[in-house]
Design a protein around this nucleic acid. Structure first.
Lengths: 150, 150
DNA sequence: GCCATCTGTAGCAATGTCCGTTACGGATAT
DNA sequence: ATATCCGTAACGGACATTGCTACAGATGGC
């Protein structure tokens, strides 16, 4: 994704960061209803999103009373580029079209566009890879302190 | 852009690169119908897209017989990041949601996500900025030579 | 001046994606 | 046992984008 597009897709990334930070800050498991309250959405939306993260091994969902979601690993072992790859799968920034192959330009332009997009997307993900969830949590905690109503 | 295509959103960037390369390679003005033939789409779609590029000063559209579209500047003066900014306006990678501000995490997480997205988007655009339309055209010409049916 | 050519744009149907919601089955602490 | 909570299917609505028709306006060639 990327920068290119991502209208709604990016909301999913933002929500994912939000939820993971919430799980890191909170002690004990968080129910989808509690999380949905913080995100301002529906619990099912949260369960759907965290289902993806659970299959990737980032969180654990437990059913039953006292259940909810927990981080599956320490925050410093979750890199933001991994998260973005999970969430934005398929929404590459340089999605390409299907030109007319009988035109000499159309026949080759797809490869050129792919090369450009791959390079830019790599730079995007490398920037995300420089930060982990632990960095995010540190930032969140710092801002929570400084705006505490007291 | 057929029905089976995956991400529709970023196709506009790919088509823009395609069209600009076509304009650079072709001598004289190109009609929207000719361009649409190369892109495999409808002439109106081309006119809509090139309308945006025209307002940004990248191309010139001339009405009437012998009319069509021309590049408004030399290819080396069109950087790909400018093009992407034009096309993907609004679809920034930093799209964020609207959390519950009564939650201490929700209250601050938007700023954190914005910071992350801005940084990654900057890296994306800087990668694009390293290339101009002239580089694209050189690449296209090279590939046209090597796959010429002869 | 007349006319054929082309852009510029509005309007509309079709398509696809994502979200929010309801509903229900299954798992599990107590 | 039972209340709690996840997992998932299903459905409607909101929204974006594309493809298309139609027509007004500009313009070069005769």
């Amino acid at each position: 994704m990327s920068v290119t597009d991502i209208a709604m897709t990016n909301v999913r990334f933002a929500v994912s960061v939000h939820v993971l930070a919430l799980l890191a800050v909170t002690e004990g498991p968080c129910t989808s209803e509690f999380i949905a309250g913080s995100v301002s959405t529906n619990p099912v939306v949260i369960r759907r999103l965290l289902g993806t993260l659970q299959r990737a091994g980032l969180v654990i969902g437990r059913t039953g009373p006292r259940g909810g979601f927990l981080l599956a690993r320490p925050a410093r072992d979750i890199r933001l580029d991994q998260l973005h790859r999970l969430i934005a799968e398929g929404n590459v920034s340089t999605a390409s079209h299907s030109p007319n192959f009988r035109c000499p330009v159309g026949r080759v332009v797809t490869d050129v566009v792919d090369r450009i997009g791959t390079r830019a997307e790599k730079a995007f993900l490398e920037a995300l890879a420089r930060e982990t969830l632990a960095d995010v949590v540190r930032d969140v905690r710092g801002r929570m302190e400084s705006c505490k109503p007291k």
